[in-house]
């Protein structure tokens, strides 16, 4: 399966005035894959998506789909489906009219009716087809927008922070649904998000971006367990960054540190500062007291069950064990 990637972004650079939004970005996406563009706001991920959609034009570089350079193709001719952050539903049209809107002139009347029905079925909104957007909940609107985007059978689907406007419960539910739908259709999908949990749960491939550049491309497991940079480590999940000598940095995630009541081999002493109860586990904030890292703050996640066996009162001294295999070293 080392065939050509389905979508290839090559050396794309984009500036707005003096601001560089994208700096020499190269990403490959294979067919049917779910890719997340992940990064903090302003990192360039939305710009990259808009370049793929043809809504922005790169200063340099090209976008290749299936071996064809589409960089100079206008948006309308790229055959992409896009779900916008605001959904951009047409407020004066009902759900089914929204879906049918783009089909007019491209399909026959009966085909449009058929297709609209199929799409409504697919997203489970048949019973609400005559409702106007303001009469739909956020999640329902999101599904209409999705149905509208895929009605044209696009070559790939672009999702611009599609879940960010929803409340937590709906968001979690839709994550699953969205992913299921994507797998069912087998449509190549690129989603922009700033929510690392979303990216981890949904994506086949995560492209972590920061400051107009790509920090890391890899599977969710890779970027979590083997982050390529302190930024990635810090952005995805929580991490303790501990400086070593000669400018090197060592990282370890809070759940991998073990708290020992007394000193064991390789442990370092620390003083408990604060304990946050978080349900199934507690997060313990500590200050290291050994010479090399004096006053360095670290956090440790302890299962609630284990915590009850430890004395974690404020100012009590404990000993931390950082397993070698869980340590990540950056140079």
């Amino acid at each position: 399966m080392t065939s050509l990637p389905y979508l290839s972004i090559q050396h794309v650079t984009k500036t707005f005035g003096s601001f560089t939004a994208l700096n020499d970005i190269t990403v490959d996406v294979s067919k049917g894959q779910f890719t997340c563009l992940l990064g903090p706001s302003g990192c360039g991920k939305t710009t990259l998506m808009r370049i793929i959609a043809g809504l922005e034009q790169p200063d340099q570089g090209c976008v290749i789909v299936n071996g064809n350079d589409i960089t100079s193709l206008p948006a309308g001719e790229r055959n992409v489906g896009m779900v916008f952050q605001s959904y951009a539903l047409f407020p004066n049209m009902s759900a089914s009219q929204n879906i049918a809107f783009a089909l007019k002139g491209k399909l026959s009347k009966s085909e449009i009716t058929e297709k609209t029905k199929e799409m409504l079925d697919l997203v489970g909104l048949t019973h609400l087809k005559d409702r106007y957007p303001v009469q739909l909940s956020g999640g329902q609107q999101q599904r209409v927008a999705l149905a509208r985007a895929i009605a044209l059978s696009p070559d790939f689907l672009l999702l611009d922070e599609p879940l960010s406007a929803l409340d937590a419960k709906v968001r979690h539910k839709l994550r699953k649904e969205l992913r299921e739908l994507q797998e069912k259709l087998g449509i190549t999908t690129i989603m922009v998000t700033h929510d690392q949990e979303e990216a981890l749960t949904m994506a086949d491939q995560i492209v972590v971006m920061n400051d107009a550049e790509i920090e890391q491309i890899g599977s969710p497991r890779d970027v979590y367990q083997v982050p390529a940079s302190p930024f990635v480590a810090d952005f995805i999940g929580s991490v303790n960054l501990i400086p070593l000598q000669d400018d090197r940095v060592m990282a370890i995630r809070p759940e991998y540190i073990q708290i020992q009541p007394s000193q064991v081999e390789g442990s370092v002493p620390a003083i408990v500062q604060q304990v946050e109860f978080r349900g199934i586990y507690s997060r313990v904030y500590l200050k290291l007291t050994n010479q090399a890292w004096v006053d360095k703050e670290v956090s440790v996640d302890v299962l609630d069950h284990d915590a009850s066996h430890l004395n974690l009162a404020r100012q009590s001294v404990v000993h931390l064990l950082m397993p070698e295999r869980r340590l990540i070293h950056f140079t």
Partner: peptide
């Protein structure tokens, strides 16, 4: 919504 035009545009309307 500014994105409505873009949505229509990307759908080749």
């Amino acid at each position: 919504d500014k994105e409505m035009e873009q949505a229509a545009d990307s759908m080749n309307v």
